[in-house]
Design a protein around this nucleic acid. Sequence first.
DNA 1: AGCACGCACCCTTCAGCGAA
DNA 2: TTCGCTGAAGGGTGCGTGCT
Length: 457
Amino acid sequence: MFQPTGPHLSLPTASSVIDAVRDPTSVVFNLDGYQVLAACDLPLGGRRVSAVANSVEAACPDCGVVSTRVHQRTRQKVKDLGVGGKDIELVIIKPRFLCAEAACARRTFTQVTDQLPFRARCTARLKAAAVEAVLDEGMPIWRTCARYQLGWATINTAVTADALTIPAPDMVPVRALGIDEHRFARAKWFKHPETAQWCRVEPWMSTFVDADTGHILGVVDGRSSANITRWLKQRSQAWLEQLQVVAIDPSSAFRNAVRQVLPAVEISVDHWHVVRLGNQMLTEVRQRVTREVLGRRGRKEDSVWAHRMLLLRAGDRLTDAGLHRLEQVFDDEDYEQVAAAWAVKERLRALLAARDIPAVQNARIDFEMAVAAADMAETDKLAATVAKWWTEIKVFVRTQVTNARTESANTGIKQIKRTGRGFRNQKNYQSRILGTSVRQTRRRRRIPHQQGLHAQR
DNA sequence: AGCACGCACCCTTCAGCGAA
DNA sequence: TTCGCTGAAGGGTGCGTGCT
């Protein structure tokens, strides 16, 4: 292993001493803890490498007594990464030690190393490369098998094992928690075994994310209050107490669950979902008014329908041309209700853009005035929703904690789902999600650190 | 829009085989 | 002889595509 330390920088470490005595072939082959004894080209293009572990002693797995007495040496063929674009046939000369403790029931035991653990038939670095391809590159296991000449089950087990090394959520310090739902498969129908009735099953999953970093802390089945509370109750008291804000979608189930387990924590409602409710309201008004005016659904020759995307776009980010087109739509007396609904939507956006409590309270007065002027069932319903979530909206304005990171995590999850063409084993699905996320978070943290180093130079 | 089809991938099962 | 790692085989599933 390359150590960026040298005598001129610091005192030589144990590993740098070993590096210094390694022969050139072992340095190039670079299998941690092993030295190359021989290497040759094979007639069909591969290469055969024989290697032996550096360590000449080992502790008995039963009694722990260290032994140097070799009972026999076996040649074990193991799989390994290719070197220099060539496949490698790796042969390990593996010693079998005699236990030095006379009282120990075990007579002999074989050598175990980091690269070749108990019973292993491929090196740890080969498995690590396959796991990296799956979790970092998003490569399907199926194709990873072909690249590394491993079986599907071998790689899948390695990926699952890797997910087990992820720090438990209780070990991750979290200030702001994001909870979000997503459907991970199409709705399914099944016949109830007793009543023989057809039941619709929506395969929902809920994701728990560190809202600051986007690191996925957990994934649970379903999106009901009970599923959320169960996960929260599994956390330690200390972990729950460090939470300051929880960001959720406007869902009563989520709010109830958080209130139940964390009565003291502040809840922030995700502004993106609130804006979406405003856009939904505007679309409902547009569709209703079009039906009333034209007696049919909108078509591309109707200006309101043609500019439906323009209506939904943020008003303050419209181009002059876009604003002009919108004004032409609103000039039509038949569509003044659409214009009123648009004004309500824009007031809602302004309300969410406020940066402090006095500003958001003023913005709410403008919003309520627009709602009163519009005087429609759709806008009244939106105003009722805003009233219902007013406390949570104020928390969002004050803390600016959102579910944006959760949403991006969900995009990643959907990508995994698409690659997978349908996971049936939830355990595999979860280990892929958590494994991918934890690696992404590690990369994100590393990049600013490295940029900082460059800046110092 | 609805449907059929095939691809790409997941996942289980099972047997071979080498290590213990 | 037993254990368990490993790979092959084949069934199952979701999605994209192209046709009607």
